[in-house]
Amino acid sequence: MAKRPLLPIPDAINPFRVKKQRLMNFNPVTATTSRKPVDHVKITVFEYDENHVKEEVMPDAQSCIRFNGTNAVKWINVDGVRREDVEIICNNFNIHPLLMEDILSEGQRAKMDEIREHLFCLLPMVYFRAESATVEIEQVSMILGKNIVISFQDDPDKDVFNPVREKIRTGGTKLRNKGADYLLYTLLDTIVDNYFVVMDNLGERIEILEEIIPRQPNNRTLARINFLRKEMLLFKRSIAPVRELMNGLMKSENNWLKEDTEKYFKDVYDHIVQANDLAESYRDLVMNLQELYHVQMNQKMNEVMKVLAIVTTLLAPLTVITGIYGMNFDVMPELRSPYGYFIVLGVMLFIFVSMIFVFRKRGWF
């Protein structure tokens, strides 16, 4: 059976160092943001109904204004959050300034809100980077209005919405026949389903560690366990509030949420409950890995002490004999015997072999 590969841990990452830049700060909505400047913003617009679909890449945020008020379902997706673009879109679609501040903030826990006629959702989009075995979090904001969904995300390369785009491009799908509330459900469902993909990767790392620990119970293995524990904690803290978000959506009486869509949000709620339970189970497994590591280290230490004890016990009688004949007395009959040296060696060898035989018969080693 081939050995499974070791967990990749880059030299640039110190598993024992707290990565403060990746911790969730839970900033208040009115906090001053320190968002890094964005060089490039990509704005994609899907406008569709059951018979037609139109996909455009907008040159700037101002170009999205013409989609305000049309009857077809619109999805405006903004990759790269920049204040001036967010302000243009929010002002022209009559989005409340508090929601705009939520979009521009960083490190918030998942939440939903209703201001004016808009329904707002903020939640984490989670990825697993296999090269470094790390969990990466991207904040996604979505606004539901009349026949429109506007979404904001930071990085276009970290996107799980491609299946949604394919459904929009394909005619005859349920997504094409439904309204904007069903589009919001589909986006939320895609994000939550990707949580399970990340957990599958984390679960695979846990299985690999379970095989490594008995073979290599060393400091590097302990570093891998601690590193995986921190990634699991980051993941669990990120997705836990999404349950409250989905619960709020199911209880919402927003005008743009149709009654027949409620059962779909209930399905996403069931998925996030399952994801939270599975994340809790994985966290317990990682804690069990730490206990397994300590058990293996204790067992290894016991084996070493056992060998040292046996060696000490075997040499103890020989040390007594050599000590006796090392005394500087003039009257010792054996010292004058021509065969005394060989007789003493034979007695020592006999005692040594006899003790080994007795120990093995008792099953001590």
Rank of each mutant, 00 (worst) to 15 (best):
E56N: 14
P59Q: 09
P59L: 03
D60V: 11
D60H: 10
D60F: 06
Q62L: 10
Q62Y: 14
S63V: 06
C64R: 01
R66L: 10
F67I: 10
F67N: 02
N68G: 08
N68I: 09
A72R: 15
V73K: 09
I76V: 11
N77D: 11
G80Q: 01
R83Q: 14
V86F: 01
I88R: 04
I88G: 03
C90F: 14
C90Q: 02
F93N: 04
N94T: 12
I95S: 01
H96T: 09
H96L: 14
L98G: 11
M100L: 13
M100N: 09
M100V: 11
D102T: 07
I103G: 00
I103H: 01
S105L: 09
A110Y: 09
A110C: 10
E114R: 04
I115Y: 12
R116H: 15
E117A: 07
H118M: 08
H118R: 14
F120I: 04
L122Y: 14
L122S: 10
M125Q: 03
V126Q: 02
F128W: 14
R129F: 07
A130Q: 13
A130W: 13
E131W: 06
S132I: 15
V135P: 00
E136T: 05
E138I: 10
Q139Y: 06
Q139W: 03
Q139S: 05
Q139I: 05
S141L: 02
I143S: 00
L144R: 07
G145F: 03
K146I: 06
N147G: 12
I148N: 02
V149Y: 01
I150L: 13
D154W: 02
P156E: 15
P156R: 09
K158T: 03
K158P: 01
V160Y: 08
V160F: 06
V160N: 06
F161H: 04
N162D: 13
P163F: 15
V164K: 04
K167L: 15
K167H: 12
I168H: 00
R169K: 13
G171C: 04
G171E: 08
G171T: 05
G172I: 06
K174Q: 15
R176N: 09
R176P: 04
N177L: 11
K178W: 10
G179M: 14
A180K: 14
A180Q: 11
D181T: 10
D181Q: 05
